[in-house]
Each structure stands twice: as C-alpha cells, then as structure tokens.
Design a binder for these strands. Sequence first.
DNA 1: CAGAATCCGATCAGATACTG
DNA 2: CAGTATCTGATCGGATTCTG
Lengths: 123, 123
Amino acid sequence: MEEKTTMKCPNTFNCPVEATLDLIGGKYKALILWHLIDTTLRFNEIGKLIPQATPKMLTQQLRELENDSLIIRTVYPVVPPKVEYSLSDFGKSIIPILDAMCKWGENYLNGLDNKSDCNDKKK
Amino acid sequence: MEEKTTMKCPNTFNCPVEATLDLIGGKYKALILWHLIDTTLRFNEIGKLIPQATPKMLTQQLRELENDSLIIRTVYPVVPPKVEYSLSDFGKSIIPILDAMCKWGENYLNGLDNKSDCNDKKK
DNA sequence: CAGAATCCGATCAGATACTG
DNA sequence: CAGTATCTGATCGGATTCTG
C-alpha cells in the first residue's frame, strides 16, 4: 500500500527546518538514530533500548527512516531471520544536529531539575 | 566511561534529544520560532506568514511555546486588542539549532530537486 | 526473529461559528 | 484584533494476535 513518505505537497515546507523535523521529528526517530550513531543494531535490540515503542511503532519509524535514506536495513537470508539497522552516510550527516539538540536539551532538562546527559555517543 | 547506552529514566526522556523535540517538534513550532528570530509579531501577522495554520492551531502552538518559556506573549490593554509575540532569551538560545536544521534541511531538499533556502533570517 | 494484520481508543487538526 | 467553542474526520499509537 502507499506509504506516506515525507514528500507531501510541494509547498509544504516553508522552511528547511520543517523538512528536517519531518525526517527526524517522528516519535522515536531521533532516539533510534541516536542509538545507531556508533553501532549496528537488530530489530529486537532496538526494541529493548526503546521499550516504550511497540514493534508496530518501531517498524513504522524504521521504515520511514529507511525510505528517507537515513538508515540502512540489511536482511540476512538466514533462519531465524536476522535484520540489521545502521546509519547511512546521509544519516550520519545529521549527527551534529542530534548532538546539538542533545546538548541543548540537556541544558533544558537541568533547568527543570531533571538530571540527564548525552552520553557522548559520538565524540 | 559511559558504557550505559542511555540514562534510563522511565518517567522522563531517554535522551535530551527527545526533550528538545518535545519543545520544538510541534507542527508549526519551528516555523513560528523561525519567523520570530529577528522580529516581534502579532497574532495575525504570524497567521499570514503561516497560512496553513488555522487560528486554533496557532493559538495552541503559541501557548505551548509560551508555557515552555520559549516565547514571550505581551498583551497591550488597548482596543482593539494587541498581542505581540517575541523570542525569550531561552528561545533565542535555540536559534543555532534551528539554523543547523535549516542548513541541513536545505541540503536535503536540494537533493530532492526541490529548491528552497534559509532566507538567512539570522546573520 | 522480525515483522504483518487487525481492532480500537486517544489525540490531532481542519472548518466553522461566535465573542470581548 | 485575538482569540474561544464546538463538531468532525483523520491520524496516531497501543494491545493483541498471528506468521514465515
């Protein structure tokens, strides 16, 4: 069936910021990308890292990320099935933004008396 | 050092990136912030800059941005009513991220054969 | 293991009408 | 002018079940 990619209407994006958010603004997208920054992960591994995401949501978000060429999905024709997800070069190009958002968000959360940190996945 | 993949705080965000997206990931939020970068705007002025947003949505997004202290809402007790919106200092602190996302998105859109540019609001 | 399919409530977002 | 109120269709997202 026709899946909504990020291309909707030509005049949808008044500013590239919107386009960026459209790509990584999904519920678990930033988190998925974050986890993939320095490693390759299998479907269930991602699921364990993001327990609040159901398989359905995970599939949905992964598919969209894949369609937008941010991640690469590699299927190994073995039994049982093995599928690995990793960042594409395009996906890697967005790491600085993720990192910037992380640092900023860190600041924000600290201001809320909520401890959290970036873990410096990339460095 | 940080071998834990992510600070797991079930009640909050797994990664500050999420918090950031929670603040600016709303449908028109980035766009609103963008328009407010270098100026102060009234309700209807924002509405004209973002025609696809209905008054209801605009109010919703503006209220959230205000509650998150990203923008300042100033009401002038005159007739007819006059309300101005502007970035708070906190809101201004997010400009670099908006700008980074804009530049990245620009690249992305060009790759899609879709011309667009940042308008260099800040600079 | 990696998902697909289905059901369903919750939330989002648009159109319209109204108000101080 | 700057919203609010209401109704409604669309979409999101969770739980469950099933399959190659």
